[in-house]
Amino acid sequence: MKFDARAALRRCGSTVLALIMGVSLVSAEAAANDAPPAKELFGAKDLPMQAAPASFGFYSKGCLAGGVAIPTDGPTWQAMRLSRNRRWGHPAMIALIERFSHDAVEKIGWPGLLLGDISQPRGGPMLSGHASHQIGLDADIWLTPMPQRTLSYQERETISATSMLDKSKFLTVDPSIWTPSHARLIMMAASYPQVERVFVNPAIKKKLCDTWRGDRAALGKVRPIYGHDYHFHIRIKCPPGSKGCKDQAVVPAGDGCDRSLAWWFTDEPWAKPKQKPGAKPPKPKFAKLADLPKACALVLNGPAPASEQEATYGTAYRAPAAIPAAATSIEAVIEAAGEAPLANIPVPSPRPGLQ
């Protein structure tokens, strides 16, 4: 049999190429695994990206460009937990909070809002506490009324919100704490057309279903979820023109006082996930920058304003008249990628801690 040197070289070359490609793939995978969690990258940013306001991705998987901060204090609100630096949001969200706080005082006599977490300066995954709040369109409002004095920094860090639940009973609102004003406050939040959902504890939803005698048109937007007995969570729709923002599915028709609510009062939502005997608990997986919409890499590394005051809503803040060059690059990324990066963004499963 005659030895074919050329064929042997071709086979050898193919083998070497396959080995090189294999090593490259392994190296790329290792590099991806070694990348820091996205929450560490976004949590380290003190200021927003200076750009035209834009939300990218989904509420639980995305980022925010052109975010603005709500002032620490306003005539009808005070921001809490200032050390977290989470009073940033899309201008549409911040404007709604200010309007809501004013309406609550003027129309239903609520003393003023205590504001919980909104978003980080550039959105993205948070170091602790939330699965959502990533695109500047979510905000937590305490169910504790604002006191008629300005709280100190230390008080804002240490004062606890008041739970509305009777801890001695299963999913029951405490009648000594809950008031009709709490109901009016939540229903007012749900009444704004730009609000997509208001998340509350299942016991609070049931209380509203049983006792609300006003217009029930917005009651369907009040959705039960784990936790949320100390505060409620406002989520607004993607602002008009937000190409890279993905809305949540439309709320089902009706007031939500149906089987979907009754499910929360069964054992199923509270059962621990089944695990094989002797199996090790799965290691927590944290989203990496590469897991977020492509625009988020540009948001993370984009330019910042000169100061926090420059990006604080209603003070020195002025919405950009034109999109800066960095933001234009973001738009180019969206145009090039189309909707593909956003199509498979999962909605968090209904387990404790996910919002």
Rank of each mutant, 00 (worst) to 15 (best):
A139W: 02
I236L: 10
P239M: 10
L208D: 06
C238S: 06
M146Q: 15
P175R: 05
D210C: 03
A189H: 05
A203N: 04
R149P: 12
C238M: 09
A217N: 07
T158P: 02
P193A: 11
W178K: 04
T211W: 00
V250R: 12
M164N: 07
G214K: 01
S152F: 10
K169F: 07
L143T: 13
Q148E: 15
A139Y: 06
G136Q: 11
H182A: 04
P175Y: 09
S242Y: 10
P175C: 08
F232M: 03
G136A: 10
G136D: 11
F199M: 11
S242L: 02
I141C: 11
A218R: 05
I204Q: 02
G244H: 04
A249F: 07
A217S: 14
D174I: 08
G241P: 04
S163V: 10
K243T: 14
K167F: 13
Q248I: 11
S160T: 15
Q134G: 03
R149T: 15
E157K: 12
S132R: 10
V198M: 06
I141L: 14
R149Q: 11
K237E: 05
L151T: 14
L219K: 02
D210M: 05
C245D: 05
M187N: 08
K237D: 05
K221H: 06
D166K: 09
D138H: 15
P175W: 08
